[in-house]
Amino acid sequence: MSRKFLIAGNWKMNLTPDESAALVDEINSLTGSQTSVQVCVCPPFTSLPVVSSKVEQSEVHLGAQNMHAEPSGAFTGEVSAEMLRSLYVSHVILGHSERRQYFGETNASINSKVIAAINANLRPVFCIGETLEEREAGKTMDVVGAQVREGLVNYPSSALDLLVVAYEPVWAIGTGKTATNEMAQEVHREVRKILSEIFGESAASSIRILYGGSMKPENAAGLLAQPDIDGGLIGGASLSSKSFCDIIEAALSTQA
């Protein structure tokens, strides 16, 4: 099944609103009118309003980097799905390895967020991935399998069109290391197999699985050529309009 590539930029805790506005202006000018590859930018919460206004007239989608599972309440410092929707956010990154590592998020808590996201008609970019220690111990598939199965508990088949999965080997995030094309494809293939077991083969064949471990212009074409890699969740390279758009160009060439 043909799946449209998604190239999503995770800006993490970088850029003021003014800097974010300048970056998204550059991205809009370079790729904001094409529709062959889906593009999404995920600025920090403080930049969501200005970036929302900038992408309103372009084909670039707006994503957030996190959200709380509850719709409202005494959760100081948190942001709800409805707050994101009010800013025309369409995607939300959930379960990123940095959230798991630094903020104690678990498969169960991430699952709560994933379900809350789809109930608000947001597209969860659901992140999974193993640490270096887990890979070296031969536990990659066990770890990733548990993250998928536990993170998607009670996920309704009727909302599979909203789901995006992002495989991000933790040892390749921000380190400059990247899984080889074959290593990445091996895990993506296994993830799709697990999704088939949960939702059925036909449904699983329509779910996009992004690669999120230091994808950059130099390696994007090779990774995107793999049959089960459907785009990228881009970290550092998304902070440069040229690098980010070069990855989009690689996706356009591969999609063609």
Rank of each mutant, 00 (worst) to 15 (best):
190 E>S: 14
249 E>D: 12
17 P>V: 11
251 A>T: 11
13 M>N: 06
249 E>Q: 11
118 I>H: 08
108 A>M: 03
137 A>L: 11
6 L>R: 05
246 D>S: 15
166 A>F: 10
64 A>K: 11
109 S>Q: 06
184 A>F: 00
81 A>G: 13
204 A>Y: 01
199 F>C: 09
1 M>A: 09
177 K>N: 15
23 L>G: 11
129 G>P: 01
23 L>T: 13
21 A>N: 12
123 R>H: 09
23 L>Y: 11
118 I>L: 13
185 Q>V: 05
22 A>M: 05
217 P>H: 06
131 T>D: 08
10 N>K: 05
7 I>W: 05
195 L>C: 09
11 W>M: 02
24 V>Y: 10
8 A>L: 04
20 S>P: 06
79 V>I: 15
82 E>T: 15
142 D>K: 15
98 E>K: 10
136 E>V: 00
183 M>C: 05
102 Y>N: 14
13 M>F: 07
128 I>N: 02
154 N>S: 15
86 S>M: 13
124 P>S: 08
24 V>C: 12
52 S>H: 05
137 A>E: 12
110 I>V: 15
124 P>H: 08
231 G>T: 10
173 I>Y: 02
178 T>P: 00
182 E>I: 10
27 I>C: 04
157 S>Q: 15
12 K>P: 01
135 R>L: 03
84 L>I: 06
236 G>C: 02
192 R>M: 05
143 V>Q: 10
159 A>S: 12
80 S>Q: 05
240 S>R: 07
220 A>M: 07
65 Q>R: 04
200 G>F: 04
43 P>L: 08
48 L>T: 06
149 R>K: 15
49 P>L: 09
222 G>P: 13
129 G>Y: 00
240 S>Q: 08
69 A>T: 07
202 S>A: 14
154 N>A: 13
110 I>D: 02
17 P>Q: 10
88 Y>V: 01
213 G>Y: 04
51 V>S: 09
209 I>A: 03
117 A>Q: 06
195 L>F: 05
113 K>A: 04
170 V>M: 02
73 G>R: 14
8 A>K: 01
242 K>R: 14
196 S>F: 04
248 I>T: 13
36 S>A: 12
140 T>G: 00
91 H>G: 01
63 G>Y: 13
143 V>L: 06
130 E>Y: 00
35 T>N: 09
251 A>L: 14
117 A>V: 13
4 K>T: 11
81 A>Y: 11
93 I>S: 08
212 G>Y: 13
230 D>L: 05
